Amino acid sequence: MGRIVRTPAARRVTPRAGVTVTDRNWARDLRAALLCAGLLFALVMTIDAANSTLTPVRTALWTGLSLLLYAVLHPPRVTAGPGRLAVRGLGRRRHVCPDLLVSARRAEGVSPRLVLRDALGSRVELDPKILTSNPLLWHALERGAKRALANGLLVTGGEVLRDLGARMDTEAAQEIFEASGLNSPSSTRP
């Protein structure tokens, strides 16, 4: 039999065993959070200096306010490695074992969250957009969830993960159609 040869493109899409996959947008989101906090600090300090109302107390107040804004905007860092999906926030790090998932649910609110629990009692919350914009992270979670479902562990939330996967597939197909020009109004038939 012939040997399967992987192209460089195929190696980028399929993670190797033992490789840690990271959110590819995290650095950009971190820079945006730092920029917003820095711009707020510079703006209020400039206004105070222009009005001659800058004092050490006000400087401390504006510093605290800028740090608070940064803390709110700080993006969680999501990584997936062998047997784990980790979410690291500003002050804590939580992880679940996708192979041991027992539940997955959507938490609606100001921003939708995906809440995952495993058989070891660990729990993580993350924005589903992180998974939709990082196919390798989604692949790691989906692969583990399928194992958990096959082993009878994933008792609630399988439909949530299927819906998320279907939405990702639809968005990917739409992007492919748009890139190829198949989705343009001129290509539709009466």
Rank of each mutant, 00 (worst) to 15 (best):
Arg105Gln: 09
Arg84Met: 11
Leu67Trp: 07
Cys36Asp: 08
Val110Leu: 14
Leu69Lys: 05
Leu85Ala: 06
Ala49Leu: 12
Pro185Ile: 02
Arg167Asp: 05
Met1Phe: 10
Ala166Arg: 05
Val110Gln: 08
Pro98Ser: 04
Gly89Cys: 08
Pro128Tyr: 02
Arg147Ile: 10
Ile130Thr: 15
Arg147Pro: 06
Val78Glu: 13
Leu126Asp: 11
Ala150Trp: 08
Ala179Gln: 01
Cys97Asn: 15
Val87Lys: 12
Asp127Gln: 13
Thr63Gln: 09
Arg3Leu: 15
Pro98Phe: 11
Lys129Ile: 07
Leu149Ala: 14
Thr46Asn: 09
Ser103Pro: 02
Asn151Pro: 03
Gly158Ile: 01
Asp127Ala: 15
Leu126Cys: 10
Gly64Arg: 03
Leu126Ile: 03
Leu136Thr: 06
Gly157Ile: 06
Thr132Trp: 00
Leu100Thr: 04
Ala150Tyr: 06
Glu142Cys: 03
Phe41Val: 03
Arg123Ala: 04
Met45Gln: 12
Leu100Asp: 10
Leu154His: 09
Ser133Phe: 03
Ser111Met: 14
Ala179Lys: 04
Thr20Ala: 13
Ala104Cys: 04
Asp23Met: 02
Leu120Met: 10
Arg106Lys: 12
Val19Ala: 13
Val115Ile: 05
Leu100Ser: 14
Asp29Leu: 14
Ser186Gly: 08
Arg93Gln: 12
Ala50Phe: 08
Gly144Ile: 03
Ser103Ile: 06
Arg105Thr: 04
Arg94His: 15
Pro56Val: 00
Asn183Pro: 06
Ala173Thr: 05
Val13Asp: 15
Thr14Glu: 15
Gly89Pro: 08
Val78Arg: 15
Gly18Ser: 00
Leu67Asp: 05
Ser133Leu: 09
Leu182Ala: 01
Pro135Arg: 03
Arg3Met: 14
Ala140Asn: 02
Ser103Trp: 02
Gly38Arg: 00
Leu67Glu: 08
